[in-house]
Design a protein around this nucleic acid. Structure first.
Lengths: 133, 133
DNA sequence: CAGATGTCAGTAATACTGAAATTG
DNA sequence: CCAATTTCAGTACTACTGACATCT
């Protein structure tokens, strides 16, 4: 098979594996990194809002937040203005963990793009961005 | 997220969904198409050989062949030279089904690459091929 | 006896669905 | 009463693992 959809699948799978392997030593997965990064960038948010922003199902997001909370990387506190919501915020430990995850993620991206020159990497990313619109 | 690995994942997922949707009316999935196409191109082969060629686990390949056999699209017959092997071959109905699947697959690829010009499509495919080496 | 093959059962990770309880 | 949120339980699909019987 050499179809475009197949090539995309192969490349995506390779990238997925490299990122997962890069995160494994820290005991977390991609979803955990995504959530920590979103909290660090955009500040605390309710679980429902996070789910909508990250296009993650509320069920799955709940599980992700739970494991992060168990490790003290985020905290869940009730929203004073709306007792239904639980606001999730990143902790100091979470921020430090995120820094370590980021360095690993960056080098994984480097591995993914290793076969390409700098100019080609830019081309590829630009083309991929246009594909998803 | 705008990381290379994320962009690849997004594009691959979109391609995957389009292909699955294109195949759905025929009642089959991507793996079934892959197997029928391989049999049509390279001729009959044992299940173990097919698994190695297509990088599909023997377990999964067994299930794929079974559903295709139930629909009369392939046949399993014992290899006279080696009673362990069962040679899988595409049938006339399988060949006709494959033609229909191919037209659907081709138009799905067209949808995947729709946002790009012809020259850009070539660039993207060339870059993706180099990524998986 | 070692190795290959086909077959079956079971597991892990991810995405998704449905429903109950609480609150606005 | 209706809607939103959190939470839990369960399902579907894919990929993978382990075991077993048969045959070379």
């Amino acid at each position: 098979r050499g179809l475009p959809s197949w090539l995309l699948g192969q490349a995506a799978r390779r990238a997925h594996d490299l990122v997962s392997a890069a995160l494994a030593p820290e005991g977390l997965r991609r979803q955990h990194f995504t959530l920590l990064a979103a909290l660090a960038e955009r500040g605390p948010a309710s679980q429902a809002d996070l789910g909508r922003q990250l296009w993650v199902d509320r069920s799955d997001l709940h599980a992700i937040v739970s494991t992060l909370e168990d490790q003290g990387l985020v905290v869940r506190r009730a929203d004073p203005n709306d007792q239904r919501r639980k606001v999730v915020a990143i902790t100091g430990a979470g921020t430090r963990k995120l820094k370590r995850l980021e360095t690993r993620i960056v080098s994984a991206q480097e591995e993914v793009l290793a076969p390409l020159e700098a100019a080609e990497r830019g081309q590829l990313l630009a083309l991929l961005r246009r594909l998803s619109t």
